[in-house]
Simulated assay, not measured.
Amino acid sequence: MALGASAGIGLGLGSISTSALARAAKLHVQAPYWYRFNVGEAEITVVSDGWQMLGDPSNSFLGVPKDEVRKELTDNFMNPSDMNIELNSFVVNSNGKMVLFDTGLGTSKMFGPKGGLLAKSLSDAGIKREDIDAVVISHGHIDHIGGIVDESGALMYPNAQVYMSQADFDYWTDERQMDSPWKKAFIIHARKNLLPVRDRLIFFKDEQEFLPGITAIAAPGHTLGHTMFNVESNGQSFFFVGDVSHHSVLLIENPRMEFLYDTDARQAVKTRLKMLSFLAENRIPILAYHFAWPGYGHFVKQGEGFRYLPAPMNMNL
């Protein structure tokens, strides 16, 4: 097949000189890092904060032999030794409100230099930060709350109310929880971002529709107050699953695997099994924060685990 393809290419370019082909300069740029689609009457814009660099995935995905983690990635044509995961925030424009879900790493470089792109992605998508009415936080980890303020401490979304679980606010702003180097870094960054908005912070409850068409669904384990969200408009809906899973293969095909940054790994596994089963059985679309861009698709049951099926990108609104 390779020889046939090469022959076909050669025949097609027979009259074009190599010097003519070489004149085209390489552009070294990608498409803007946003993607837009509709759910009912709501317009959804996925806006990337870039990448979170985890390094050797066998150090972060736990509970099974390291060789099993590497084999599963290799079998799925993924790098078994160096992992970058996406940071997929999104904006819901519905009911006269602009609602941003999660704010990325912000100024933190704890997970490498590839994050912190959210402000640029929003601008590229034609969304002004001052037009954001609400910021919804899935949980208090550094890669979800890191962009609430800028380097100087000024609010990135000056007109927005902020919504999150009280359990996560209390835990990740508590200096008594600094019992490991990574938790210390998370809490310092959480205090920097969450304390300046304490006066505009609203705590939601499980199964509460706290904004029109947006309902909180408690999904504890990864953190005490980790929350998923059902986004609904005109009879259509999808679930933002946050960090129920950090990877579209690991933790999905083997949902009993654990993740390094889980507050309660056993509870995280229990929650993951429950939520993946519910979403697969009811064929509900999902948006995942850390899956390959733009992270929108479905879960289906597969053997003892599940499988993620990404939805085709629809470029015609």
Rank of each mutant, 00 (worst) to 15 (best):
K120T: 13
A7R: 14
K114A: 11
I16T: 12
L27E: 13
D131N: 15
D264Q: 10
G4W: 08
M178G: 09
R307L: 07
G112H: 09
F238D: 09
W34E: 03
K66D: 00
A288W: 04
N316M: 09
G4K: 09
R23D: 10
K26W: 12
L11D: 15
Y171I: 10
N234G: 09
V300D: 13
V29M: 03
P57R: 03
G242H: 08
F203C: 05
L62V: 07
E151W: 08
T18R: 15
A22N: 15
N88T: 07
L122W: 03
H222L: 04
N282L: 13
G116Y: 06
A134G: 04
F111N: 06
N88F: 11
H298D: 04
I16P: 01
S180Y: 03
N282K: 15
L224D: 10
L21W: 06
P65E: 05
P196I: 11
V69T: 00
D243V: 05
K26F: 11
K183R: 15
D174Y: 06
A160V: 06
N193F: 01
N84E: 05
G115S: 14
L211A: 04
A125S: 15
K71V: 05
P57Y: 06
R198W: 01
E130Q: 12
P158A: 00
F77P: 00
S17M: 03
F37M: 15
S58Y: 01
A288E: 04
Q236R: 09
G213I: 02
M228N: 05
E72V: 04
T227P: 06
P294I: 08
S248Y: 14
L27W: 15
E41Q: 14
F169T: 01
M78W: 09
R307T: 14
R256L: 04
M53E: 14
T271Y: 08
E130V: 12
F240R: 03
V149R: 02
G116I: 06
S19V: 12
V99P: 07
R272C: 00
P80A: 06
A288D: 03
P220E: 06
Q166T: 02
V64E: 08
D56W: 01
A5H: 10
W34M: 00
D49R: 10
V29A: 02
M1F: 07
K184H: 13
I132W: 01
E253L: 02
G112C: 10
I44A: 07
A125T: 15
M1S: 09
T215M: 12
V99E: 12
A31D: 02
I44F: 13
P220G: 10
S58K: 00
P212F: 02
L317W: 03
D150S: 11
Q177D: 04
A288P: 02
D49M: 04
G50H: 00
I85E: 15
K184R: 13
I142E: 10
L27R: 13
D150W: 09
F259M: 01
A160D: 05
N230E: 13
P113I: 15
I286D: 02
E43W: 00
L201I: 14
T74Y: 11
M257W: 03
V39H: 00
L155G: 01
